[in-house]
Nucleic acid binder design. Structure first.
Lengths: 164, 164
DNA sequence: TATTGTTATACTCTATAACTATA
DNA sequence: TATAGTTATAGAGTATAACAATA
């Protein structure tokens, strides 16, 4: 004989579906290349900001300084293309660096619209010292990697973002 | 008989130290882990934004959705710690997702101060579909890497940012 | 007293449109 | 007409201080 049909008893006094998370599982995100690359980049930036404080250089400012150092006469447009900066946002960076008297804008020898970017002697020294320091900081970011692993890591990252 | 001392002729018509850069050398920056990680992360985000447009989910929103999906009842504080988001900035994210009716805040069963975060059925479907899509997009980001290289890359990135 | 979630707010970063001078 | 540099401005992302409710 079939059991009589009866209303289900009211749920036991669980004010919510008892759900308490002890440890947060982020396994899915950690399987994603983009997520891991971003977390690693943020870790590196954190080390950079701390270690570069004496130079008062933000990451993008060191990038600008370094590219000018290795490419004297480079134009703003070339800098923007190389670093992925938009032209309006480079203007303020260059103004800051020019006020610090480490960068100078000179008229371009062949194109009257463009400016050739150069470092002052002080800028050359700053670029040298800052590049040396950031190279040291890299070692602490990559502290848990062997030299071979670091080389592999950088090579694989380049395969991700550099055009084939 | 010594040539008479005469003023040096005005410099030849070189208005500036002839400096024309053909190709920009970024070798120094490309030797830095942080620079490469950031460029790779930006490349991945670009692919994400394009491919995830139909879902109208920003990267951080998918992260939030995914963590809640895999950790029902997780608190805001736990989410912030897991994803590196500051609590004031999570509030707006959760408000947006709650207005979309994919996330619900429920009172925490044991801690009256906290909120347990849960997905609605629609949120569960969105999380499933979005995770599937982002997994596909990963393949295009890592198109130039072999499966083994991708595994190596992710493992090495974790060694950079995860505590030993 | 310490912690969770929240509000308000400020600062930085990034993006778009439009102007000028020159090519 | 197209491009280089610039201006102004808007939007997104990220940061700190302070408060109410609860532990």
């Amino acid at each position: 004989m079939p059991a009589a049909r009866m209303p289900r008893p009211a749920a036991a006094p669980k004010p919510t579906p008892e759900a308490i998370v002890e440890e947060v599982d982020t396994a899915f995100l950690e399987s994603l290349l983009g997520y891991n690359a971003r977390r690693a980049a943020l870790a590196a930036i954190s080390v950079f900001l701390e270690g570069m404080a004496p130079f008062a250089l933000k990451p993008v400012e060191l990038s600008v300084l370094s590219v000018i150092a290795h490419n004297p006469g480079v134009t703003s447009r070339q800098l923007c293309n190389a670093l992925g900066i938009l032209p309006p946002n480079l203007v303020g960076l260059l103004n800051t660096l020019e006020k610090r008297e480490v960068v100078v804008r000179k008229p371009h020898p062949r194109d009257g619209r463009a400016m050739g970017l150069h470092l002052t002697p002080a800028g050359q020294k700053l670029a040298r010292d800052a590049e040396k320091k950031v190279t040291e900081l890299e070692a602490s970011v990559a502290a848990r990697l062997t030299p071979a692993e670091l080389r592999t890591l950088i090579a694989l990252l380049k395969k991700v973002y550099l055009p084939a």
